[in-house]
Simulated scan of single mutants.
Amino acid sequence: MPDAVGVVQTIGFPGVLAAADAMVKGAEVTLVTYAGAESGQYFVAIRGSISEVEQAMAAGLDAVENQAVGASVLNHYIVANPPENIVSVLPLEYTEADEPFR
């Protein structure tokens, strides 16, 4: 079964940084991608087992809402069992740079 994917989208860079930090510290997940968009929106995506992704997402959302001043969560979502075609099209695949952290 493929690893689950969790995504958090925030307004403001401090929010996405707080989410990413809390997620990788809060559970055994790998940060696989991060990107910025217009209007100060950012997102970060993690992968791991569904139980670890759920735990990491809870930690990340809590960090944005309670620790990152001026930041807010726009959206968040967990894909428990992503099909291979999504992983091959979107930037969610593990890369060589990710391997030391898995």
Rank of each mutant, 00 (worst) to 15 (best):
53 V>R: 00
53 V>E: 01
53 V>H: 00
53 V>P: 02
53 V>L: 01
54 E>Y: 07
54 E>R: 07
55 Q>P: 03
55 Q>M: 15
55 Q>S: 15
56 A>Y: 04
57 M>Y: 03
57 M>G: 04
57 M>P: 00
57 M>N: 02
58 A>L: 08
58 A>F: 05
58 A>S: 10
58 A>N: 08
60 G>I: 09
61 L>Y: 02
61 L>Q: 11
61 L>P: 00
61 L>I: 11
61 L>A: 04
62 D>W: 08
62 D>F: 06
63 A>S: 11
63 A>M: 08
64 V>M: 02
64 V>P: 00
64 V>K: 00
65 E>Q: 12
66 N>D: 09
66 N>C: 05
66 N>Y: 02
67 Q>N: 12
67 Q>I: 14
67 Q>P: 04
67 Q>A: 07
68 A>M: 06
69 V>Q: 09
69 V>G: 02
69 V>C: 04
70 G>Q: 03
70 G>E: 03
70 G>D: 04
70 G>A: 02
70 G>R: 03
71 A>W: 00
71 A>C: 10
72 S>Y: 05
73 V>S: 07
73 V>W: 05
73 V>L: 13
73 V>E: 03
74 L>N: 03
74 L>S: 03
75 N>V: 08
75 N>H: 12
75 N>E: 12
75 N>W: 08
76 H>T: 12
77 Y>K: 08
78 I>N: 01
78 I>W: 00
78 I>R: 01
78 I>T: 09
78 I>K: 01
79 V>G: 04
79 V>R: 01
80 A>L: 10
80 A>W: 06
80 A>Q: 07
80 A>M: 09
81 N>E: 15
81 N>W: 10
81 N>P: 06
82 P>Q: 08
82 P>R: 07
82 P>G: 06
82 P>N: 10
83 P>R: 13
83 P>L: 13
83 P>E: 13
83 P>Q: 14
83 P>H: 14
84 E>W: 08
84 E>G: 10
84 E>Q: 14
85 N>A: 10
85 N>S: 12
85 N>K: 14
86 I>V: 15
86 I>S: 13
86 I>F: 15
86 I>L: 15
87 V>N: 07
87 V>L: 15
88 S>N: 11
88 S>W: 01
88 S>Y: 04
88 S>D: 15
89 V>I: 14
90 L>F: 11
90 L>N: 05
90 L>I: 12
91 P>I: 09
91 P>R: 12
91 P>L: 11
92 L>C: 13
92 L>I: 15
92 L>N: 11
92 L>S: 11
92 L>H: 07
